[in-house]
Amino acid sequence: MSHSNTTHFTNPSAFILQGVPGLEAAHGWISIPFCAMYAVAVLGNITIVFIVKAEPSLHEPMYYFLCMLAITDLFLSTTTLPKTLSLFWFNSGEIDFNACLTQMYFIHSFSAMESGILMVMAFDRYVAICDPLRHSTILTNPVVLKIGLAVVLRAVMFMLPHPFLARKWPYCGSNLIPHTHCEHIAVVKLACADISVSSYYSLSVAFLLTGVDLSFIVVSYTHILRAIFRLPTNDARLKTFGTCSSHLCVILAFYIPGLFSFLTQRFGHSVPQHSHVLIANMYVLVPPMLNPIIYGARTTQIRDRLMGILTPKWT
């Protein structure tokens, strides 16, 4: 298999993932933390889903949304990490053209789903704190299901043009993708055509979806904080705020790496290429790894249930 970056083609059959440009010799070492984070992400998110399913007291909207988040994290990390690890361990960088576009689509779709789920989790916290008496009547099981379907459909529809636009460009230059996975801009930059449509659409969708989600989260937490500060005692304020702290940590874990990845990809022209790639990988690795840890450590019901499973029962 040739790794030449001078290969010319019009209708590519495959691309070659380069990994972390400039750090190819260190791929084996880089794979160790990547593999560890992926293992934690898979084990942690499966555990969250299992605990919520097995514990009847957790059959509430907050934990249903948490299950949606865990499942989304599983798919988001699994979309990229197995191929990345095969590249690091076996130098298996070749990826079929259609498989590359499929991976691109799922990366963006699951990222959009995660953003949407974080938004509806903020709405759940808003109703629970600002209008607790109506929480069970507003967020019924059918409503939760409809919200979940809406989040999925929104991501599926908005991200669908990405692979179709990428497919229509002619590729007649290098088939080397300087990345560990088929990141959208890294792929379309290989086209020998004006890719403004792809670039502007990607930028518009990012601002639209993330802007709407973050705006809704900010408005929700503005009302939540106002309600908390109206409580009569510090203990009551701390206890109420504690119900939101896990969600706030998860929001930061998702949006901060995402923001860094987006800004360095679009505007960080002086940032080394290997930094672009490593930051993009943190975006699909760190949130899936941290989310179950955050909720497991800070949510009493989940922590107690987990300890009950792990602690041997002596008779």
Rank of each mutant, 00 (worst) to 15 (best):
S136K: 09
N45Q: 01
I228D: 08
K239H: 09
A150R: 02
S13Y: 06
K239I: 10
H59E: 01
I309V: 05
M68S: 12
L74T: 02
F50N: 05
L101F: 10
V205S: 11
P132C: 08
N234C: 11
S111N: 14
H274D: 07
N281K: 07
Y221S: 09
A54Q: 06
L149P: 11
F88Q: 11
H247Q: 12
T140N: 04
A193V: 09
F90C: 14
A280R: 03
H27T: 00
Q103D: 10
G19L: 04
A155F: 02
V40F: 12
I138H: 04
I293P: 00
L139S: 07
S86R: 15
P82G: 12
H184L: 13
T315H: 12
H59A: 03
G148N: 10
P232R: 13
W29D: 04
D213P: 01
V197G: 08
F9W: 09
S198F: 05
H269L: 07
F216A: 15
V250H: 02
P170F: 04
N281I: 15
Q265I: 04
I177P: 03
I107P: 12
F50W: 08
G268A: 01
P142G: 01
V218H: 11
A297R: 03
L259D: 08
M1C: 03
I294A: 09
D235P: 03
I224D: 07
Y201H: 03
T311Y: 00
C249K: 09
P56N: 02
M68D: 14
T300Y: 09
I224T: 07
L118M: 14
T222Q: 09
L160E: 03
L76D: 04
L225D: 07
L17A: 02
Y201K: 00
V250P: 00
C67V: 14
A193Y: 11
F90W: 07
Y64W: 15
